[in-house]
């Protein structure tokens, strides 16, 4: 029996879909059987981020309404044989599916896959409730901004109300230059406020935009720093203890030492 993980944030535009795509691809890269589920009904995007938009035949709503079997709606990834996508319906609304149906779907997928990753829509309404139904673990994505952190805090409370405790936090779009100047909240500042477990930190990185343009998750790019951040996150999800990327070092000497693995 696999594990289901929902990737959520409250606020839109913080990088949920990119995070789900990269973690899913990263887990598949190390040999796990992974299914990505796009729960953002009406605003599907995980397909384009994964570069699989031309292969969609059936979607999540077709499955829950019984128009097709789960198997026939799953799209196999171009690059990895053990990675699949269940796309969202684009022409339906969020209330076309309910939490009970999502729970049943999750149970079915968990039988086939090691990991089921659900990309949650922004907001806290029906779409959120659907996406968290049947999740074993929650990952909250935030950015070092007041609005995103505030929404993340709301999500922590709402997840608890859905009996999802101890969420993991990913802080996305960290800018080391701004942290050095004291113009961006640090990881410690954010953890201090939210008081939840840190799963990973991801730098604000141009390579994410480039890889999204191409429909190739950055985690596959050995040279990408954010790709490295996601590979580290994947290893932590698998139970390994991996140090966080040194994105917040204030002293140049320390940064250089780290670069050479001396500290």
């Amino acid at each position: 029996m696999g594990k289901s993980i929902v990737v959520t944030s409250g606020k839109g535009g913080v990088g949920k879909t990119t995070t789900a795509a990269n973690i899913g691809t990263g887990l598949a890269q190390i040999g796990r059987r992974v299914c990505l589920v796009d729960a953002d009904i009406g605003l599907r995007n995980l397909d384009v981020v994964m570069g699989l938009e031309n292969r969609i035949v059936y979607d999540l709503i077709d499955v829950v309404e019984g128009h097709c079997r789960v198997r026939s709606a799953l799209i196999k990834d171009k690059r990895l044989d053990n990675l699949f996508l269940l796309p969202a319906a684009q022409t339906r609304e969020k209330d076309a599916v309910n939490p009970e149906q999502m729970k049943v779907l999750m149970e079915e997928l968990k039988k086939e896959f090691d990991y089921v990753l659900v990309d949650c829509p922004a907001g806290i309404e029906q779409g959120f409730k659907n996406a968290v139904a049947g999740a074993d673990v929650a990952i909250i994505v935030t950015t070092p901004e007041v609005s995103a952190v505030r929404d993340a805090d709301r999500i922590v409370g709402l997840l608890e109300a859905s009996e999802l405790y101890e969420p993991h936090l990913i802080i996305n779009r960290i800018r080391p230059d701004m942290i050095r100047k004291g113009d961006m909240m640090t990881t410690d500042d954010i953890i201090d406020i939210l008081a939840i477990k840190l799963l990973g930190i991801v730098p604000d990185d141009e390579s994410i935009i480039i890889s999204t343009n191409r429909g190739e998750p950055a985690v596959l790019d050995k040279k990408s720093l954010s790709g490295q951040a996601f590979r580290n996150i994947v290893r932590r999800l698998e139970g390994a203890s991996v140090p966080f990327l040194p994105l917040e070092e204030t002293s140049m000497v320390k940064r250089i030492l780290r670069l050479f693995g001396r500290s």
């Binding site: 901004e145 007041v146 952190v149 505030r150 805090d153 709301r154 409370g157 942290i179 100047k181 004291g182 113009d183 961006m184 909240m185 640090t186 500042d189 201090d192 406020i193």
Partner: peptide, 26 residues
């Protein structure tokens, strides 16, 4: 002025405002 701590760093302002707003949200 930074060296002598004269200017408040904007991240401290962010943290302070977040703390207050979360007291109410929670």
């Amino acid at each position: 002025s930074r060296l002598f701590g004269a200017t408040e760093q904007s991240k401290d302002k962010a943290k302070e405002r977040l703390r207050l707003v979360l007291v109410q949200d929670r």
